[in-house]
Design a protein around this nucleic acid. Structure first.
Lengths: 253, 253
DNA sequence: CTGTTTATTTCATATTATGGAACTAATTTT
DNA sequence: AAAATTAGTTCCATAATATGAAATAAACAG
């Protein structure tokens, strides 16, 4: 535990909000139990959230639930991220060309954060990704695509700070394998996630190089293995690389 | 002022977070000034947000900025709103058929809250709508579409509780005009927003009737007046009504 | 180098959050 | 139908926590 929250209630307030966001709705006692709070405290915390408009009490069953206010705050934040607005049309085109779900991420430390998503129209399976959620760099297509562009020392730092876990039988957990993989990515120009993060899902990923400094963004095409044999991979990679070039051009202008 | 926040810091914490979301980034003194806080307090509040992962301090310039954590929380909330997942494919189809931006809202008191949006590909102008943001029922297409389905007493209540403001020269501010408008909507089956909320933008809106009780959701097609003459309105209204029927069928199953 | 602004740390104090207890309302059991 | 259980709300004395003045440090401008 790295020190402690300089404001105790803060943890309780945001904890309650997160709990409501996860559960959809909860009674006072549930919140009280989940956050290990005295019920009076839980009651006060919830009423504070209600006062500020972040929560409400359901009129019919009295249960507490979150409002859309935090959604508004979130979309204010996303509205400031210019790269999303610029890149989205290209990602949409890529989804339409391939018929598969396309993701867009931004690097944050040893993780990538999903900042946009264009879902496949004909999706049988739903991707579990969520805008704002994180995925480790070391075991994701988008992550590896960005890491491949980095300096040796930064790659080492990421590998050493990452908690290497075998998420699936295909997850790369050996340092040498990882470095070999990165070399392959550099040669090919795109990264491949062969069920390394989630069983049954393959991704093709490209990073966007910054004018200077290492890559901060990447996009990927995700599809179930059943639609991703070697031929399809080559086909999709072509589309991805073309789009990557188009975006690069747009960013230069 | 309706009483006061049962937890004083709560207002400061969320105020700081909202401020960072609005400005993109801010120095300590800016936060301190904006929220009228002692700089020590501002510092502690910001550090609490950082501790919880909702904010960070930019490594190069030391300025405070929000992270994507609140975006994650927001999308957790949105993920629980099933109606969005169900309706989205239809709204997408509608956007593709019409080439115009489509919005989806949920009623909340005297407002509608945007809960989904499918943006036009060939958009010249950007709609200022934001997921999570609110629009009054009385002066919006989606709002009027829902109000038209309500009982007399509820319509009165909404009108009386709304702060009627002439947002544009076309905004309906007369009670009788409003009631006449609602009657027209009932006859036509769809609502029209003729620059009543934002100059230069016309909308066609349909509500989704609930199995029982009054309408809680509505969708709309928005376009600049230049692309919305009477002929186009009839054409778009046809598309909208057809999609409304398709959604209704899906919801019955 | 000097003055100025901004950020961080310290600490005594008072305000604020805390939780036990009492109370009410709703739901379930006997 | 009464009793018991559970959930939700209000009250209040107390302790713990957030507060802000002041001191210090760091960054920046002239």
């Amino acid at each position: 535990m790295e020190h402690k929250n300089p404001i105790q209630v803060a943890g309780r307030l945001f904890g309650a909000l997160e709990f409501l966001a996860e559960t959809g709705s909860a009674g006072l006692m549930e919140v009280s139990a989940a956050l290990d709070l005295n019920k009076t405290t839980a009651h006060r915390v919830l009423n504070s959230l209600i006062y500020m408009g972040y929560a409400r009490q359901n009129a019919v069953n009295g249960r507490y639930e979150s409002t859309f206010k935090v959604v508004d705050v979130a979309n204010r934040i996303m509205g400031m991220v210019d790269i999303v607005q610029i890149v989205r049309p290209y990602l949409r085109k890529l989804m339409e060309a391939t018929g598969e779900t396309v993701h867009f991420v931004e690097r944050d430390g040893i993780d990538a954060v999903y900042i946009d998503k264009v879902e496949s129209l004909s999706n049988g399976i739903q991707m579990v990704s969520r805008i704002g959620s994180r995925i480790p760099l070391y075991c994701s297509g988008v992550g590896k695509a960005m890491v491949a562009e980095m300096d040796e020392w930064e790659i080492e730092e990421i590998w050493n700070n990452s908690e290497i876990i075998r998420l699936t039988p295909y997850t790369i957990t050996d340092h040498d394998d990882f470095k070999a993989e990165l070399e392959e990515i550099r040669e090919r120009g795109y990264a491949l996630d062969n069920e390394e993060n989630e069983t049954g899902v393959r991704c093709i990923a490209c990073s966007l190089k910054e004018p200077m400094g290492s890559a901060r963004h990447a996009f990927s095409i995700s599809a179930p293995v059943s639609r991703m044999d070697n031929d399809r991979i080559r086909e999709l990679a072509d589309s991805a690389l073309k789009v990557r070039e188009e975006i690069a051009e747009k960013l230069r202008s």
